[in-house]
């Protein structure tokens, strides 16, 4: 159940970042969040690079979910 909750949240956040519904997140999608989140462009770029495991410049739902799951389970299991 915990994993299901995590997957739902990851999907929800992915859609927040991928507002156009392309199926991937590009760096400019991440930079667009600058208006909505209290993070600087530099921080958002760091987030993107941290999530972009293969470094191809696009975040897939799998990469996003992997990054989110690390955060999610580190929060729920201190």
């Amino acid at each position: 159940p915990c994993q299901l909750a995590m997957l739902r949240k990851a999907q929800e956040f992915f859609q927040t970042c991928d507002a156009e519904g392309k199926g991937f997140i590009a760096k400019r999608d991440m930079q667009r969040l600058h208006k909505e989140l209290p993070l600087s462009l530099e921080e958002l770029e760091d987030v993107f690079d941290a999530l972009d495991a293969d470094g191809n410049g696009f975040l897939t739902p799998e990469e996003f979910t992997t990054g989110f799951s690390h955060f999610f389970f580190s929060q729920s299991n201190p």
């Binding site: 929800e12 993070l39 921080e43 941290a50 690390h70």
Partner: peptide, 29 residues
């Protein structure tokens, strides 16, 4: 160890990012 430091930093920015998204969704900072 620079690698460990980089890992900890990216963990920090990710935590910050996801917490911001959570706050945005729930409306509670």
């Amino acid at each position: 160890d620079p690698n460990m430091k980089a890992g900890a930093t990216s963990e920090g920015v990710l935590a910050n990012f996801f917490n911001s998204l959570l706050s945005k969704k729930t409306g509670t900072p």
